[in-house]
Design a protein around this nucleic acid. Structure first.
Lengths: 209, 209
DNA sequence: CGTGGCATTGATGTGGCTCAACGATAGTGG
DNA sequence: CCACTATCGTTGAGCCACATCAATGCCACG
């Protein structure tokens, strides 16, 4: 089994598991928690290029270097594999490679969709799109109650991290959130919590249907 | 052989091979030419999410729908496969799936790098980064002469398409190009041609080393 | 009761967008 | 071969969405 070459590791919120540009020596499966993938410019501007949840895969198999840093957004637990061993194991198990291929194709579609947001959407649309997607993702993993209107969830990201994901500044994110709150579309009970009150209005804000 | 289920097809510049949201019924290999992958918002803003060159793969295997339109930027030739047949063939040929996985992982890295550009870079940095990458890519496929300073190439994209790729407007792209020209970093002999005169200065403009 | 890290809010600045005019080039038909 | 036209690209003027700079509020922690 694959488990023989993996080991479970706890990761604390804020801890970085892999660094952009490092030799790719580890890959992993997320067991629990939320982590971010990010890149930075030389002068320190950061962009979050992906957010991963339980059952997602992280790291770069079949490649020399890791292109993106991986940092825990919440306390997390992952199953780490040495890359070389994983690569070998994968090559001998087509079913695993097939599964990995499907995941990677999905991630690619998601990344490309996000490019539309970063390249063409306004700040309001970005924030609304983000909140809807986050609600969706967290509903998937929590298997929370019905879709009927009011959905509440806790953001795994700080305002700064939301800004880094959306290609905005912290102030703009904050202002867009208060705008949505004042419009009665969402509520913000505390720093991390969000309640989507009007999901139809929200979709309109996001610039979809 | 895989060739048995594929057929060669010529595609004219401007012709769209697949439409965003369509059922994924075809996949293909690029034999010759350059094509774009793109998405749009409901109100018509467009974002180019990828540019593919000879030997690249297009389409969405193992998925119900195509997330992005595919349009020829130059006259092109591709080898088309019915998706269902390709999927079956791939499942039975782990080596093909392995190759596809490696390509897809590379594409994902590239897409994520592009997210940094779209989310965090200035117009000047975007244009410079684009020109450097294009020079690189075209040098790879043409196997053109030495790296020594002056590189000339023809853009496969119009100004509008560059804008759609970089998340800018056509005017801003134009202004950045004239700025680089006036700074003596590039030359623009005609609409499509670019000569990089000072590749070091160019890298500085791109916001790298 | 401070102290430090996040978040909100306000005031001001600016990079890139918008709107508009003009110029260059390629394709077309006489 | 040249005028005519459509398309694409460049340039300019003004504006606006978002960034920047700065002050204040809110908790959680010692």
């Amino acid at each position: 089994m694959l488990n023989r070459i993996g080991r479970r590791v706890d990761v604390q919120r804020g801890q970085t598991l892999m660094w952009e540009g490092d030799d790719s020596s580890l890959v992993a499966n997320v067991i629990d928690g939320v982590l971010k993938l990010s890149t930075s410019t030389a002068d320190g501007r950061e962009q979050i290029v992906g957010v991963v949840y339980p059952s997602d895969f992280i790291g770069r198999p079949f490649g020399e270097t890791t292109q993106h840093s991986v940092t825990a957004l919440s306390d997390a637990r992952v199953c780490l594999f040495p890359r070389a061993a994983f690569d070998n194991f994968a090559r001998e198990h087509p079913q695993l490679e097939h599964k990995l291929l499907k995941r990677t194709l999905n991630e690619l579609d998601r990344a490309r969709d996000w490019m539309l947001l970063l390249g063409r959407k306004s700040a309001g649309e970005r924030v609304a799109t983000f909140l809807l997607e986050m609600a969706q993702r967290l509903a998937d993993s929590t298997c929370g109650g019905g879709e009927g209107s009011a959905q509440r969830f806790d953001l795994p990201l700080s305002r700064q991290q939301m800004a880094d994901l959306l290609g905005l500044t912290i102030e703009t994110v904050s202002r867009q959130l208060t705008r949505l709150r004042q419009a009665g579309i969402i509520d913000l009970p505390d720093r991390r919590a969000v309640i989507i009150l009007e999901s139809e209005a929200m979709k309109a804000e996001a610039g979809n249907g």
